[in-house]
């Protein structure tokens, strides 16, 4: 029985790392712009397909596939902010919230991306990127772990560390944090808020794309794979929607919880488990595991 649990935990951590990356992309946008990005899942999907195209047409090695997908989606996210959200913001009426319109714009983006991908060749069938690493699985005690799964964890951890370093150590990262905390004050001290918003959308999209490339060898690609964003929302809520470390913990916890529920409650409860956990968290600790104090905010 212990072996079953350990195996379920190991697999859950791998899946959870990917949930965490997607959750990070959502939380970064939310913290900086107050917008909940409902197109996050579709950007993951675009990242996966961008990786596939880079492999098929350009024959790039994996490291460059990640870079290609990240750069392509960075441009996508930044352009979405520049072309759509900036216009929406520009039509804001003083005293009225523009957030609903911005959120609806992200819903629109999700449909556009999904519809757009369906006209691209190779998307009619379930596809899969080849694994980054092949070979015999590794045994950690009695637990079997695929080399691919270890690579997923490593890439996820490296990306998370890089993100932390970017926000903590670089001037642009600090400017982004300042913009997210108080855009007006940031503008007063000379931070180009508009450009910072574009950068945030770009970084968040690149993160989602990296998650997409990580997912593509493991969970397969279809134009509908973006529904995984629901699990990323769950991860973010569990960890605390405004907390970056929180959503990493939330993602990993969610992956493990799904497997434990599948093991002890039933396989058909796996898809219900995230929502049960969300309800439990919202009832007992609405701010999430690592979120700050709950404060009412007029929007």
């Amino acid at each position: 029985m212990t072996l079953l649990i350990l195996q379920a935990i190991a697999s859950g951590v791998v899946t959870g790392c990917v949930y965490a990356l997607i959750a990070l992309s959502l939380v970064i946008v939310y913290k900086s712009t107050d917008v909940i990005n409902f197109a996050g899942g579709e950007i993951v999907m675009i990242g996966g397909y961008a990786g596939m195209l880079a492999l098929l047409y350009l024959g790039l090695p994996y490291i460059l596939i990640f870079a290609f997908a990240a750069i392509a989606t960075f441009a996508l996210g930044a352009l979405f902010d520049r072309i759509v959200l900036h216009k929406v913001l520009g039509r804001a009426v003083p005293g009225q919230s523009i957030l609903v319109a911005m959120v609806i714009a992200t819903v629109g983006l999700s449909y556009v991306l999904k519809g757009g991908v369906r006209v691209v060749p190779y998307t009619e069938e379930v596809r899969r990127l080849p694994p980054f690493f092949t070979g015999e699985p590794i045994f950690i005690g009695p637990v079997v772990v695929q080399r691919q799964d270890i690579a997923i964890i490593v890439v996820a951890v490296v990306v998370m560390a890089a993100l932390w370093a970017f926000f903590s150590l670089t001037l642009t990262g600090k400017a982004l944090r300042a913009t997210s905390q108080n855009p007006r004050a940031a503008a007063l001290v000379g931070i180009p808020v508009r450009r910072m918003r574009m950068t945030v959308w770009g970084i968040a999209s690149a993160l989602a794309a990296i998650a997409g490339v990580l997912l593509a060898p493991k969970l397969l690609m279809t134009p509908d794979m973006g529904v995984i964003v629901i699990l990323a929302f769950a991860a973010a809520i569990i960890g605390g929607f405004a907390s970056l470390p929180g959503c990493i913990i939330g993602g990993i916890l969610l992956g493990v919880i799904q497997n434990i529920v599948g093991l002890y409650v039933g396989s058909n409860a796996i898809s219900v488990a995230p929502f049960a956990v969300i309800m439990l968290i919202l009832a007992l600790r609405p701010q999430g595991l690592l979120g700050g104090r709950v404060a009412a905010k007029k929007v």
């Binding site: 079953l4 195996q7 379920a8 697999s11 859950g12 899946t15 969970l219 529904v227 995984i228 699990l231 992956g255 799904q258 497997n259 434990i260 529920v261 599948g262 093991l263 039933g266 396989s267 058909n268 796996i270 898809s271």
Partner: peptide, 20 residues
């Protein structure tokens, strides 16, 4: 008997039970 959701993305738990 493992009844899995159509959108399942990790089949570890059902396959562990099958193996057991």
């Amino acid at each position: 008997v493992e009844r899995i959701p159509p959108r399942i993305n990790d089949v570890t738990a059902p396959l562990l039970k099958v193996r057991a």
